[in-house]
Design a binder for these strands. Structure first.
Lengths: 135, 135
DNA sequence: TTAACTGTATTAATATATTTAGTACAGTTA
DNA sequence: TAACTGTACTAAATATATTAATACAGTTAA
């Protein structure tokens, strides 16, 4: 499904969270799409199932996925969840990164170009009303 | 000088790096301004000098400060260093954060407003030609 | 020159965080 | 029923961060 850097200073479960977020954000994974089970993904990546579970738990806490016992873990309809806390976080982080970029010599024009690029690369995923029952 | 969260999941030395970067980026610390010595800052913050040293080493590697044995550590003229690698990093990080923000519902207008806000908050520091000798 | 400062390096011990391993339980699906 | 799913828990192993103590070399000012 994707590659990990087992030698990275960044914990594996964090890499997993980041990578899965990317896939969800860029609509590579559709709404309600089933993620690999913790055991299957663990085997594919040759890491412990507990590590996958930790990543999935974090993604669920942040509202990106939801899990149903016995069924699996699925991509969430993000708008259904309260993500105001996440928005605040990402905005604060963005301000720091923007300040750093400006300091390093990146121009405002370049920053605006980045926004345009990202916005165009994010293709909208179609809506789909058939969702797994959540209990 | 500033406060740290010793209970945070984020390592102390990383908090130090981030905080000092902020101060440098926002011109709270002027070019060639002397930072507290590793021992003094360690005492002020009640942490080990080695942890300060680790943060300073990282800041030096990223080009934000330079250190002279026997003299001290000083804020760098960032433009004198090759920061293209740092620029590439921060741009990549920004793209991820922008994608996440858009996904969470932040509008492009809000993103552009963020840039304006940051740009206005960063007051330009005056140039100063008297620098410590680097050897 | 001396005393007190500076950065830097190294080793060892400790503390904390991450990952693995193994097991168990409950719900789902065919 | 058999094989899947998420979830929880404890224990052990591993990796990382932090502290502690010491040492060495360059700088500064008395």
């Amino acid at each position: 499904m994707f590659e990990l850097d087992l030698r990275s200073r960044k914990p594996i479960y964090e890499q997993l969270v980041d990578r899965l977020k990317q896939l969800i954000i860029n609509n590579v994974l559709d709404k309600d799409e089933k993620l690999p089970s913790v055991r299957v993904l663990a085997q594919q990546l040759s890491i412990n199932p507990n590590t996958i579970q930790k990543a999935y738990r974090e993604l669920e806490a942040q509202g990106y996925i939801y899990s149903v016992k016995g069924k699996g873990s699925f991509v969430n309809h993000i708008m259904m969840t309260d993500n105001s806390a996440e928005i605040k976080k990402v905005k604060e982080q963005l301000k720091k990164q923007i300040a750093e970029a400006l300091f390093l010599g990146v121009t405002i024009e370049e920053l605006e170009k980045l926004i345009t690029e990202v916005e165009q690369s994010v293709t909208r995923g179609d809506q789909d009303d058939s969702s797994p029952e959540r209990h």
